[in-house]
């Protein structure tokens, strides 16, 4: 999966065409780690039409904040470089994530 950082974020996400999902995560976020294998599986399943990426906020905190991400886990959906959905919260599960990915997949 594409690993994002402050050097490639602009080109890979903001200036990119199509739908890109970004998983903002960190080592200290238990729920992020819990969701990671599910996200990996979802990425493989829907990878033919959507692009999946992840961003470790360690060292990229300001970048995350510039994307209005102030809490983890956060999955942000970009369509042609524009933010169009932001999933977050304690009760976020793989099911809800996949449901949203599917919606974007069907429109892509």
């Amino acid at each position: 999966m594409l690993e994002l950082n402050k050097d490639n974020f602009e080109n890979e996400v903001i200036k990119a065409a199509g739908t890109i999902v970004v998983d903002f995560w960190s080592e200290s976020c238990e729920l992020c780690l819990e969701l990671m294998p599910d996200y990996q599986r979802i990425a493989e399943e829907y990878g033919d039409k959507l692009k999946f990426a992840k961003l470790d906020i360690k060292g990229s905190r300001r970048l995350a904040m510039s994307q209005q991400v102030m809490g983890l886990p956060s999955f942000v959906f970009y369509v042609d470089g524009k933010k169009s959905e932001h999933l977050s919260g304690e009760d976020l599960d793989a099911e809800e994530l996949e449901k949203t990915v599917k919606e974007f997949y069907e429109q892509a």
Partner: peptide, 15 residues
């Protein structure tokens, strides 16, 4: 949620 509301300090304190 995820934009300023949090239930987990260890997850989000960094921000």
């Amino acid at each position: 949620r995820g934009r300023g509301v949090s239930y987990c300090a260890t997850c989000d304190a960094d921000f």
